[in-house]
Design a protein around this nucleic acid. Structure first.
Lengths: 221, 221
DNA sequence: AAAATTCTGTTGTATTTACAACGAAAGCAG
DNA sequence: CTGCTTTCGTTGTAAATACAACAGAATTTT
């Protein structure tokens, strides 16, 4: 467990907490370690979750199988990322998705009840922890809403323009770089990569924007 | 204001707080009441929000309209539900969506600063309040993720199937009713209404499901 | 009860997208 | 440098979608 302290220090959950304090908190939070083989299910749809998890090693897929058996990958979890935080709520119902290790993985479990119940003197960083989760969820909330606003655009062109113009706003400049390659951007916007590449070229030909690799520049018309 | 105490007692925000305590907290939180006619905007995109709201009566849609008038319903608020809580975080910027009353509605406003500043002895339930907000954000997070999982499907057919499949799971039955009419469902899934109607008919002809108005039944194949 | 409005399914057409396939460019490994 | 892999833009075709328009049903208003 000790060996994960350095990793944990860099996570959003333990942001602002020193390594030593983290170690003492791990006991307080009743932290557990579990390992999963490649292909093994960490959780299945319908299970109750009473822990907050952080992936220490490996890679997980959050995926879903529908009524007729079609599979869909919703999210990929990488080391240091937290998951299950949306299930902290009491009576939040059962998990709607499956969580599968797509590599040999190590997951840290933190008891939800111990996170929520502040143990007065023992853990001075407990309120910090709750605050961190609160901010993380709140941030995530907003970025989810933003993503939805891109995805709700009907055409690939409009999805691109709404995303890129938001990025321009965010960078306060009409030139900026994006954190995605083409395939990732296509996945993020839920469109076909080649169709998107096509649309990007068209936008460039029309003089609306310019790009080299991940560097984009929006042009006035 | 007093007449809403019974309602508030059953809300997530005041969960675990008695009616008498709620009444004394209303003053502490500087609670205000505002009424909206059907179709009236409670908030518009770009406004600053410094309150936490609870819908007392009626129905609200949190929605976004793009340049060409395509509407996307992000969420439907029903009596007792809280909204605006994601903007509690400092420096969270302006509202990204519109909030519209789709029925004659009554909204209660609570001063955010008074919520965040715990007034020690005065309000013994203040920490409970913050905890409750935390839970609510967490819940919304979950439903946003669900919505994204529907919208990320490439075709209208897949969007419908993933949504309906989830509703069946949620109701624990292959028969259930949905809270949308056709246009609202189309907006929720960000697809064209007529194309969606078309697809629904096709799915029915193929024997995958059945529906009458808002009542749906999924069929094994 | 009648009139007006909203809701829903259906059709046809123009447009857009998905998909597969390919070659060029870029990045990486030996 | 050479071979291998990944990324990217492009093309053509099949499939799906958006859009407009309309009529019948259902609902609301008068």
């Amino acid at each position: 467990m000790k060996k994960y302290a350095a990793l944990l220090k860099r996570t959003k959950l333990f942001s602002g907490v020193g390594e030593n304090d983290i170690l003492s908190m791990l006991h307080c939070l009743n932290a557990q370690v579990r390992e999963y083989n490649k292909g093994e299910y960490a959780f299945r749809q319908g299970e109750y979750i009473r822990s907050l998890m952080i992936l220490a090693v490996g890679r997980l897929h959050i995926q879903k199988e529908d009524y007729w058996g079609n599979l869909n990958i919703l999210n990929e979890i990488r080391p240091g990322e937290m998951f299950g935080e949306a299930y902290i709520v009491p009576n939040s119902g059962t998990l709607m998705n499956d969580v599968v290790a797509i590599e040999e993985s190590v997951v840290l479990f933190f008891d939800i009840d111990r996170i929520l119940t502040v143990c007065s003197s023992a853990c001075p960083f407990h309120t910090q922890l709750i605050k961190n989760i609160f901010y993380t969820i709140s941030d995530k909330n907003k970025s989810l809403v933003q993503k939805i606003s891109y995805m709700s655009q009907r055409s690939t062109r409009e999805k691109l323009l709404s995303y890129l113009s938001d990025e321009a706003k965010r960078h306060n400049s009409n030139s900026f770089s994006i954190p995605f390659n083409r395939q990732q951007l296509a996945d993020f916007l839920s469109v076909d990569r080649s169709a998107m590449s096509n649309e990007l070229s068209r936008l460039r030909n029309e003089g609306m924007l310019d790009f080299h690799k991940n560097e984009f520049t929006l042009r006035e018309l």
